[in-house]
């Protein structure tokens, strides 16, 4: 009967595998194939072009600019999100009346879709009729076209991204902070550590596995899932300053119908994510302290 027990797990995994193959592996393999082809609009004619799609991409100075934009956007929003989340989470674990209610409200952005978040920020920042513009104008007498001028459009998109990602990080940090044993903090206080030292010398290292995990998660989000916010808020403009890699991919595939190039771009993104994750796991994980 031993063969049965060996096979059982695989049989049980079949349904999951079918779903993963249909929705992940098959499309991924298809786009890999597509990146070596040029295709007519309706897919009725296609031709093998070898590496032409990739060569076109990397001989286009525009594409390097898009990569740079993506990196600045991703790294700065990830860094700021993690930093702000770490600070705010310190406040949210204090035993102050109303903390629970406040936590509830601060988690709200995570529960709404990127499209809604983008629309919301667009309303707030629309030139001359947006609420935030109105407040800025009344209080400081300045009127900025947040979504239509450089570099403000880039900043606006980053703000919205941080606002959207923050609750996810907060949940993890709060859970992490609550699991730090009180005895550790008490003994540090006896040793004379002040608030600042406790925060960075004790809590931060103890929470490093969480930070490590959040970095990867946030980075993936900004690289791949930032599409909704950008599409609604700026559509990649002005002058392409908010066109990230994923948005360019969308434009090439669905606005310019250049499927071959779009597929090549998805392979490039896959490679970049692979390399960054690899480097990160090999170099940074050493400094992560698991309890």
């Amino acid at each position: 009967m031993s063969w049965k027990s060996k096979l059982t797990p695989y049989i049980l995994l079949i349904p999951t595998f079918i779903i993963i193959i249909i929705f992940i592996y098959w499309p991924a393999a298809y786009s890999f194939k597509l990146s070596f082809y040029q295709e007519s609009f309706f897919g009725n004619r296609s031709i093998f072009v070898g590496l032409d799609n990739f060569i076109d991409l990397f001989t286009d100075p525009e594409y390097y600019r898009v990569i740079l934009t993506s990196f600045i956007y991703s790294f700065s929003s990830v860094f700021l999100t993690i930093f702000i989340a770490f600070l705010i989470s310190q406040l949210l674990v204090q035993n102050i009346p109303g903390t629970r209610l406040f936590r509830l409200f601060i988690f709200a952005p995570y529960a709404i879709s990127p499209a809604i978040a983008g629309t919301l920020w667009s309303f707030l920042l629309t030139p001359t009729v947006g609420y935030l513009n109105y407040i800025f104008l009344e209080l400081f007498g300045i009127d900025t076209d947040w979504l239509t001028t450089t570099p403000y459009a880039f900043i606006a998109v980053m703000l919205a991204t941080i606002w959207k990602m923050l609750p996810f990080d907060l949940i993890f940090y709060i859970a992490g902070l609550q699991s730090i044993p009180d005895s550790l903090l008490e003994s540090s206080m006896i040793d004379g550590a002040n608030l600042w030292q406790r925060m960075w010398k004790i809590k931060f290292p103890l929470l490093s596995p969480i930070t490590f995990y959040l970095f990867i998660m946030n980075f993936t989000t900004t690289m791949f899932a930032s599409f909704g916010i950008i599409d609604i808020m700026t559509k990649g403009g002005p002058l392409g300053t908010t066109t990230t890699m994923i948005y360019k991919l969308y434009l090439d595939a669905f606005a310019f119908q250049n499927n071959g190039s779009a597929a090549a771009q998805s392979i490039v993104m896959f490679a970049i994510m692979g390399v960054i994750t690899f480097i990160y796991f090999h170099n940074v994980e050493k400094s992560v302290h698991y309890q």
């Binding site: 629309t126 030139p127 076209d145 700026t234 559509k235 990649g236 002005p238």
Partner: peptide, 10 residues
């Protein structure tokens, strides 16, 4: 006043 790209309703 320039609107966002292709922002008809704006």
């Amino acid at each position: 006043l320039n609107t966002k790209r292709e922002d008809w309703s704006g």
